[in-house]
Simulated assay, not measured.
Amino acid sequence: MSEVSALAQRIDALLPQTQCTKCGYDGCRPYADAIASGQALYNQCPPGGAEGIARLAKLLDRPVIPLNPAHGQARPRPRAVIDESLCIGCTLCLQACPVDAIAGAAKLMHTVIEDRCTGCDLCVPPCPVDCIDMVPVTGERTGWDAWSQTQADNARSHFEAHQARLAKDKAEREARLAARAARVAAGAPTAPATEHGTSEATDAADAADAIAQGAAASPRSQGNRETAPSSAGDEAAAAAARKHAIIQAALARARQKSATLAAEGLGPKNTENVSAAVQAQIDEAEARRKRLGLATNDTSPPPTPGDIPHKG
């Protein structure tokens, strides 16, 4: 292990492991690497606060300096809380959470696993219906006074498990795509889509598409295999219309809630200056809603089965 790498490991051990990216890097270890290599200062971590800076200064044999306000302010530790009455089960917050602190699945309501949440705020910006609030849970305590080494160690373990799962999912997805490309090159028929959809549709982002599009047929229409084609088409259209109406109602409630909170100066925090990865998720969600006729001022009719693009 090189001297710089060894130093980065020691720096990483002193960081709170919230993985919030407020330091300007994609996680605590990348920030530690930047400090060790002289590319970043040791006062860019708001969750660590003054105590965190003091710890790093002692390790580096540097003077204690104030927290750089460009990266935020030390604050009481918050916890994400999801308003389940507004949640539409889009899974975007699950994708954004760096420690898998949100439980849920496509088309199901999500909830926060309290003991895992690091208060990083990363789930707030991607939410298309603004149903996540960051609620302070440590009173007036900030920085390491509001966090413990045990919590930091657990957060690191959860983050590493999250990263390992993402890498495994990516490898499996690439293997499926390579196998499909090989079948196509050989002139063999591609494998039919399963009830879970094509390999691409296994991605959470595609699952969100399926929710917004109303692509899944209703249980009634799936079970009635002897219905005439026209009747089945009518049922599918009705199911899509119902899903569209539910989503539009959720969006309307969320917009009203956002307007009320904004008027009171209590709007969502940390929705600006987010990392490039989170901003990409926000842009993707916005593009998806516009493509599906779910924009803020949308008055378009619900999608019909013929309008729903087929994946795969």
Rank of each mutant, 00 (worst) to 15 (best):
R176A: 13
T18I: 03
L261R: 15
R242P: 01
R75D: 04
A181C: 07
I88L: 14
A185E: 07
C28K: 03
A204Y: 09
L60D: 10
I113Q: 07
A70H: 13
V4Y: 08
T202S: 08
G52R: 01
R242Q: 15
P126H: 02
Q213E: 14
I102V: 12
K257A: 13
D234V: 07
G89S: 06
V184F: 01
I65F: 07
A188Q: 14
L261A: 14
V135L: 11
A179D: 12
A32D: 03
T299F: 10
T296C: 05
I113D: 03
A80W: 01
G267K: 03
H310L: 15
C23V: 04
A208S: 13
T271I: 10
P125F: 01
R141L: 11
K22W: 02
M134Q: 05
L59R: 09
A217H: 09
E51P: 02
A50G: 09
C131K: 03
P30K: 03
E235F: 08
A181Y: 05
L166F: 13
A201G: 10
G312D: 11
K170F: 13
A205M: 12
Q149I: 11
A80G: 14
C131W: 02
T296I: 15
T190P: 00
T194F: 06
R141H: 13
T260M: 13
A216Q: 12
V135K: 11
S300F: 11
H310I: 15
L94A: 03
E272S: 04
T194K: 10
G52M: 04
V184W: 00
V129S: 02
D83H: 11
R288V: 05
P219I: 05
G265D: 07
C131Q: 02
M134T: 00
A207V: 02
A241N: 09
H162G: 07
R255P: 02
V124H: 01
S148R: 12
I65N: 06
C123G: 04
N68K: 11
A186F: 02
A205V: 10
P76V: 07
A263T: 08
R29Y: 15
L15Y: 03
Q279G: 00
H158Q: 14
V137C: 08
P66T: 09
A57D: 08
A287Q: 11
I308K: 15
A164P: 04
D61W: 05
A146K: 00
R156S: 05
E51K: 13
Q19H: 09
H162M: 11
P128V: 03
Q222V: 12
A182V: 01
R29E: 09
H110D: 05
S275E: 04
K58Y: 10
E160H: 12
H71D: 01
A215H: 04
L14M: 08
P309H: 11
P66A: 10
A205P: 00
I132K: 02
G214Y: 00
L56F: 07
L177C: 06
A245D: 15
T194I: 05
